[in-house]
Each structure stands twice: as structure tokens, then as C-alpha cells.
């Protein structure tokens, strides 16, 4: 059923391109995330040539190897791919005007992304959003009780996006229609 739904959506190149673009954007955002202020500073620097401006952000993509654990790299890539695929399927959905369906899958997808964003970053070193959120409540000590020190949110993001993907695929394949 899932494969059939994927075939139905991605037989059109437009949806493949859309999924690739969105997945890439999410991945790049995740990897650049800790250094957004540096990238902004470099991009706005008048004394640096355009090619040099591009070199640094491109090289920063290599931090998926140096600044991520194997686990966090895996769920970051998984979130990016799942988000791109989910997004394409949602657009397919809306385009076909299949509106009389359960919207739980779409909702789940957005919660998945939200959860993934919370878990992004260097969990072991505190440079991720969860640290900042918890510190607002003086509760960063909670991290020390989490076995993956916050990486759990990235995994939760993958799970929610997978559920979303499944629900949307199911609805594409078996849309709720009036039966005789």
C-alpha cells in the first residue's frame, strides 16, 4: 500500500524534485543551524568575493561528520528525507483536492518536524534548542536524566514523521469517498 502510494505520487517528476528540494533544505538547515550567525556575517561582508562566500557554507556541510554523533547524523538525515517525502505527498493531496480525509497524518508530520528541530544539534555538548528551552525554566538538569541527553527528541521526530508518512500514504491509496 505504501509503495503503491509512493508510485502514485512520485511518478510525476515535479513531486520528486519537490521532495528533493525540501529534503535538502531541511538537511542544510540542520547542519548550518549552529552557525547561522556566522553564515549571515560572511554573506553580508562587502570585502569577500562571492565564491569565497560560498566556500565556507559548503565546507560547513562537512560538520555532519565532525559535529554529529552517528545517531544524531542518522536521525537528522532521516528527518530531512521523511519531511521532504511527507511534504510532497501533502502537496499531492491538496492538489488532488482529497480534502475529505483524516488530517491526522499531516498534523503528525508537523509535530514530527517540531520534535526533530528540538532535538537537532550537539546533544552531548548542549548546543541544541532543548538546552535553551529548558534553561528558561531552570530545568537543564533534566538532560542528565535522559539516556541520550536530548537525542530522544530527534528519534521522536523520526517516529512521528514515519507515522505521518504512513497515514498520508494510506489516505492517498484509500481516500475517504462516498461508497454506494
Amino acid at each position: 500500500m505504501v509503495i503503491q502510494a509512493l508510485q502514485k505520487v512520485f511518478q510525476k517528476p515535479l513531486y520528486v524534485i519537490l521532495a528533493l528540494v525540501i529534503s535538502t533544505a531541511v538537511f542544510v538547515f540542520a547542519v548550518w543551524f549552529p552557525n547561522i550567525s556566522l553564515i549571515v556575517k560572511i554573506m553580508g561582508h562587502p570585502g569577500i568575493s562571492f565564491s569565497e562566500k560560498l566556500d565556507l557554507p559548503i565546507s560547513l556541510l562537512g560538520s555532519i561528520v565532525t559535529n554529529f554523533t552517528l545517531l544524531s547524523a542518522m536521525y537528522t538525515i532521516a528527518i530531512a528525507i521523511l519531511f521532504g517525502v511527507n511534504f510532497s505527498m501533502i502537496i499531492y493531496f491538496l492538489h488532488r483536492r482529497i480534502v475529505d480525509v483524516k488530517q491526522n497524518g499531516i498534523t503528525m508530520g508537523f509535530f514530527g518536524i517540531a520534535s526533530g528541530v528540538i532535538g537537532m544539534g550537539c546533544a552531548a555538548c548542549g548546543s541544541f534548542l532543548l538546552t535553551s528551552i529548558l534553561s528558561l525554566f531552570g530545568a537543564t538538569w533534566i538532560l542528565s536524566f535522559l539516556p541520550l541527553t536530548g537525542g530522544e527528541f530527534g528519534i521522536l521526530g523520526v517516529i512521528l514523521l514515519t507515522i505521518s508518512f504512513y497515514v498520508i500514504a494510506k489516505q492517498i491509496q484509500n481516500p475517504a469517498v462516498c461508497s454506494s
Binding site: 480525509v101 488530517q103 499531516i106 498534523t107 508530520g109 508537523f110 517540531a114 528540538i118
Partner: peptide, 27 residues
């Protein structure tokens, strides 16, 4: 179900957006 869930997507988008905006803001 559409009537019951008609706010779920906007709410989810807003929450996800808040998290992402917060991520950029804090980082």
C-alpha cells in the same frame, strides 16, 4: 472528521513554526 480536525493543521503549523523560529532565535 474534517470539521473536527479543521484546526489541527493550522495549530500544528503554528507550533512547528514557533519551534523553528525559536531554534533560530536561540541559536
Amino acid at each position: 472528521p474534517v470539521q473536527q480536525n479543521n484546526l489541527s493543521i493550522p495549530v500544528a503549523i503554528v507550533i512547528a513554526g514557533m519551534f523553528i523560529a525559536g531554534a533560530v532565535y536561540f541559536s
